[in-house]
Design a protein around this nucleic acid. Structure first.
Lengths: 126, 126
DNA sequence: TCCTAAACTGATAATGATTATCATTACTAA
DNA sequence: TTAGTAATGATAATCATTATCAGTTTAGGA
């Protein structure tokens, strides 16, 4: 993996945003400051960074993949009203992968927990 | 919701298959016996049935949505070698949604746990 | 410093999954 | 039987993502 200015920019942009953006959302943020960057470059680098474990790729929240600079073990909640994505602490179910292994004998490489519902903020409104 | 022969066929085809098919996979199975059915009809009805809670739509296993006639609470494991999808019993983490609610105050409507790894069968093959 | 190979880029075409459109058909309640 | 509406099949459109490719940048020697 060779250094590239674009990758640097993409990683910084992701780190500055706690909104778990999709590749396209991040692209739209970045072109404001770097109008020459290509959409494919954003996709490419996000995937590369996720492969290397430098960032996280989150599936299953909606139809698009989201990216997260927080690589610590944690899960996600998406509010079906405001569509905001929240982090859920890992210790909510820290032994779950181990349980699955004990019960099934399957080797677990990745555990993805996603919760859908109404966040506290949207509950009080309305 | 009005009766339709196609919906009946789609539901039966899903019930007969434990393979958690995608809409397209199910379509390819069905046209063998019902060559006139349209792909859009399969998508439409699977989504409709999932909305009504008659079947389950599973996200996050791979890029396509899979469907499951088993509506009992349970989770899924996908083997990264053979791509087979296995059911994981619910009691592996039966209190997890409750835990999230207690910790965050968020109302949980849907909990989706998906595990990726190597199944027992593929482990022994090597 | 200069040179080359490999990695990276931007633009865009291609893909794959899914949804929208629309004219036609099938169900159902009166 | 009929009218109203939901459903259908064919296909165009969309959306997210990946592949392609010619030109550019980077990095590690000579």
């Amino acid at each position: 993996m060779k250094y590239s200015k674009q990758r640097e920019i993409i990683l910084r942009a992701l780190e500055m945003n706690v909104i778990h953006p999709t590749a396209d959302e991040l692209y739209k943020l970045i072109i404001k400051d770097f109008p020459n960057i290509g959409l494919a470059t954003v996709y490419r680098n996000l995937n590369l960074l996720a492969e290397k474990g430098i960032i996280k790729k989150i599936y299953g929240l909606d139809d698009a993949a989201h990216f997260d600079h927080n690589t610590h073990n944690h899960h996600h909640f998406i509010c079906t009203k405001c569509n905001k994505i929240y982090d859920i602490p890992y210790d909510i179910a820290s032994d779950i992968a181990d349980n699955v292994w004990k019960k099934t004998g399957f080797t677990i490489e990745k555990t993805e927990l996603s919760f859908h519902g109404i966040c506290k903020n949207c509950q009080t409104k309305n």
